[in-house]
Simulated scan of single mutants.
Amino acid sequence: MAKPIKNTPVLKGKEAVNFYKTIDLNKDRKVSVTSLAAIQSDASKLKELLKVN
């Protein structure tokens, strides 16, 4: 039998501040074109594998 899933802990104090700082630093970052193409290629391959006939 599977173990129950624990709730995600709430971030408090320095952990919360650091989390929001990293969110702010990365909100303007864009995914590179090559990474996006690789992700789309992998997604299409996965769709083909999961296609119901």
Rank of each mutant, 00 (worst) to 15 (best):
N26A: 02
S32F: 06
N53Y: 08
N26R: 10
V33M: 03
K27F: 11
D24K: 15
S44W: 12
N7H: 09
K14N: 09
L50W: 06
K45A: 11
D24H: 13
T8E: 03
S32P: 01
Y20P: 01
V17I: 13
L49E: 08
K21P: 01
G13K: 06
D28A: 08
G13H: 06
K12H: 10
A2G: 00
N18S: 10
S35T: 12
E15L: 11
T8H: 04
K51P: 01
N26P: 00
K51Y: 07
K47D: 13
K30G: 01
A37T: 14
K12A: 06
L25P: 01
L25D: 14
V31A: 02
V10G: 06
D24R: 15
Y20R: 08
S44V: 08
E15M: 11
L11T: 05
V31L: 09
D24N: 14
K14D: 15
E15H: 06
V17H: 12
V17A: 10
V52D: 13
N7F: 11
L25F: 09
N7K: 15
V31Y: 03
K6A: 11
D28I: 02
K21T: 10
K6L: 10
L50A: 06
A37C: 05
K21V: 14
I5R: 08
K27Q: 13
Y20K: 08
I5P: 00
I39L: 12
A43C: 06
P9F: 00
N18P: 01
I23W: 11
L49W: 04
K47A: 09
F19Y: 15
V10A: 14
